[in-house]
Design a binder for these strands. Sequence first.
DNA 1: CGCCAAGGGTTGTCCTGTCAACCAATTGGC
DNA 2: GCCAATTGGTTGACAGGACAACCCTTGGCG
Lengths: 163, 163
Amino acid sequence: METQWLDPTEREAWLRLIAVAELLPGVLDHQLRSGSGLTHFEYLVLAMLSESRERTLRMTGLAQRTNATLPRLSHVVRRLEDRGLVERFPCPEDGRATNARLTGAGWDQVVAAAPGHVDTVRRHVLDPLSREQLAQLKEIGDALLARLDPDGRMTALYDPDRA
Amino acid sequence: METQWLDPTEREAWLRLIAVAELLPGVLDHQLRSGSGLTHFEYLVLAMLSESRERTLRMTGLAQRTNATLPRLSHVVRRLEDRGLVERFPCPEDGRATNARLTGAGWDQVVAAAPGHVDTVRRHVLDPLSREQLAQLKEIGDALLARLDPDGRMTALYDPDRA
DNA sequence: CGCCAAGGGTTGTCCTGTCAACCAATTGGC
DNA sequence: GCCAATTGGTTGACAGGACAACCCTTGGCG
């Protein structure tokens, strides 16, 4: 099969997307680390817990929402537990499962970190876009996620209503 | 200053963007690693060299194009050099600087890896979007990059004409 | 019952990235 | 000319993520 190379329009869109994907995590990470001593990933974990009922989630569910492998999540949660931001306890309904729950200190940490984080998001992502572009970005995101996440593992993150 | 929280439109756009930024690198990395034994970052490095004249670039320039810190690039180039894909030699015009040049084997490797990579990009990113959305994505990317990369360090990657 | 396959997590090892310290060459002021 | 400050790059120690191996529970099914 002959490879179908990229035409100019495709190339322009594509290269910008990689550049954004390459730069964005670094920007978020830096702000959160210097502002709150949290990784962007750690913040995601805490934020997902904070929005769940009982502030509790099974490890597996948490891993899906944050696009983490189970080993990765296990390590991160252990560190968060050492810092007193999260606690783990066996799931009553299923002896195999482990639940992670946000502690009071964890909640406080999220609340403290949120304003600075939102502010960064505004300045770097939301402000430069028009309302129309925001809507376009949503549509584009949905189209891409249908391919990047065919099983809808991260649906709970970006489209809670559908989850 | 009161924090300005996100309205629904902003939130929808934002959450999809993080989800994409979180998923995309993994997808690209997997395909390249299994298909060619290269990291996405390593591929970027080789690709940038392959498009430069003499297939040569100063370490600093290469670091900018790939959004890498100098230490990171230095480590990666050393490994690529060990594998015979790249060679380093002191820059004649500036005794401080080091040039990295793609070897014949490195070129072959890029050529061999490209079709599979392009194919992945098509399937996961380009195909699901309409021509109109590709154009919108370009505009959105430009707006974001103006903030994420104010100094235009990565311009050479996503907009070679302007560099 | 008794097994065995599948599901849910944790642990350990290796590899890669970051940060700080360091060295070498260049530039600029005086 | 010479010394300080800057630029360009490398190295080493440490932290975080991927992968594979492992353990324990649950749920079918004979």
